[in-house]
Amino acid sequence: MDIQFVFFQDDGLIPNNPNLPAAIYKKALEPEEMEAVFHQHNWLNSWTNGIFNFHHYHSNTHEVLGVIKGDARLMIGGGSGKEFAVETGDVIILPAGTGHKCLESTDDFSVIGAYPNGMDYNTKYGIPAERPEVIEDIQRVPLPNEDPVFGDGGPLLQKWTNSGLNI
Rank of each mutant, 00 (worst) to 15 (best):
F5Y: 12
F5C: 08
Q9I: 00
A22T: 14
A22Q: 04
K26M: 00
A28W: 04
L29K: 04
E32R: 12
M34L: 04
V37S: 02
F38G: 01
N42D: 15
N45C: 02
W47K: 09
W47Y: 14
W47C: 04
T48Y: 06
G50S: 15
G50F: 01
I51M: 10
F52P: 00
N53G: 12
N53W: 01
F54A: 09
H56D: 11
S59E: 09
T61S: 15
E63A: 08
V64N: 01
L65M: 14
L65V: 03
V67G: 06
G70S: 06
A72H: 04
M75H: 10
M75E: 13
I76Q: 04
G77T: 01
G78M: 06
G78A: 05
K82T: 11
D90T: 00
V91T: 07
I92E: 00
L94C: 06
P95K: 05
G97S: 10
H100F: 05
V111E: 07
N117I: 00
M119L: 15
M119Q: 15
Y121I: 07
R131K: 13
E133V: 13
E133W: 12
V134P: 08
E136H: 10
D137R: 12
N145E: 15
F150E: 15
F150G: 01
P155K: 11
L157V: 04
L157K: 10
G164C: 11
N166I: 14
